[in-house]
Design a protein around this nucleic acid. Structure first.
Lengths: 216, 216
DNA sequence: TGTAATGTTTACCAATCGGTCAAATTATCC
DNA sequence: GGATAATTTGACCGATTGGTAAACATTACA
């Protein structure tokens, strides 16, 4: 007789570890493409290579699966922003922030798309996190940027929109990958495009934020 | 007895005009949030305020509805890029391109999200258009940008990634609207945020593309 | 090695899905 | 106003959906 599933987390088996991993991996595949509503348990079960009831033995509902996935992904997703350091100098901090975000887009495009899908749907599962922890983190980093502005290290600008623009430009290469590939053509669709993107974005942001030397 | 639906386009009734408009409007509401797979005909019918069979009288399948919607939206979506003019000077052209794209994001966010959903799903319905007409248009505009670079009007950079970065930064305000609002907080979630965004992005791109006067 | 806990499968359920059909209703035009 | 075309509806269909029940198989551990 199986334990009530609520108690399952008390002690985790080897098999539990493996299967849950397997399921979340498959769920990421499916959710990141079709979004929550558009994905089916059957689909995920097939990708995971197990029967639907077996999958439901580990995650009782589709919601639970999605929630577990989001929880696991979000932490890593914010890591680069957390690393944004007030002590460092603006140019290298921004440069390395762009690098990190671009690496995430390259190495974890499904995670990026999972998040993008959630946003498009109005963030029904993560709205509290956006308004709480995310906002606080961004507020904090915006304050850092403001000190850079006040000390004349970068041009006067809105720190929030600066952060938004770094997010959007870098995530674009994961979320709109198919469009990027289509426009660049077969020849420039290798991993080299990430190097090109990094070079361009660093140039754009470093150049665009350099304090104005003509005016004052 | 109703006409075979294939002949319907020969002469269009007043009612046809109205109802099809009504349906596409509702379909835009639904598809832009849930994507193709995640949306249901019943949902759209309810938003459109008509019965499902009635809706299916005008569009035989969900696919047909989606296709009609995409077709109608895509043309307008590319208009700003088409307006990108080789004769104008780079600064004002880029400035007004950003403005136009940002206005689209503000005034037609559902259209932007419809497109974003399609991209996330791998562009199953528009891949040919991306590889064909879109690529050609972008190639053409990239050539324009290259002439600006050659004549020293803007800094040397990759024109494709420049275009991508304008797309992503502007569309971000439609596609990730919920995140932008959450991070900015209630007080900055009015329409004023588009003015702030415009000011920041113009500054970023104009500054970032200004030819380097320190080097040469 | 036995047994209890854990894991898996087959069969199934009610609800919803995309879509059809024929009958009923409404608009159009002479 | 009547015939005819256009529109709308309710009832329905088979397939798929998220999820369950219970029998069956396997594992861990004493």
């Amino acid at each position: 007789m199986a334990i009530p599933r609520a108690a399952k987390t008390l002690r985790r088996t080897r098999i539990q570890e493996e299967k849950e991993e397997q399921i979340l991996e498959a769920a990421l595949d499916v959710f990141s493409v079709s979004g929550f509503r558009g994905s089916t348990i059957d689909q995920i079960a097939e990708v995971a290579g197990m029967s639907k009831p077996n999958l439901l033995y580990y995650f009782r509902t589709k919601e639970a699966m999605h929630r577990a996935l989001i929880d696991r992904v979000l932490f890593n997703w914010l890591e680069p922003l957390r690393a944004f350091d007030a002590e460092g100098n603006p140019e290298s901090e921004i440069r390395s922030y762009i690098r990190r975000k671009l690496e995430l887009a390259r190495d974890f495009p499904r995670e990026s798309r999972l998040f993008a899908n959630e946003m498009l749907q109005g963030a029904p599962h993560v709205l509290d996190m956006l308004k709480g922890p995310l906002k606080e983190l961004v507020d904090e980093k915006a304050a850092v940027i403001r000190t850079w502005i006040k000390s004349g290290k970068i041009v006067h600008c809105d720190p929030y929109h600066l952060i938004f623009s770094i997010w959007s430009t870098t995530q674009h290469y994961a979320d709109f990958d198919v469009q990027v590939r289509a426009v660049l053509g077969e020849e420039h669709s290798g991993d080299g495009r990430f190097e090109d993107a990094a070079r361009f974005l660093e140039q754009l942001f470093i150049g665009g934020l350099r304090p104005d030397r003509s005016g004052a």
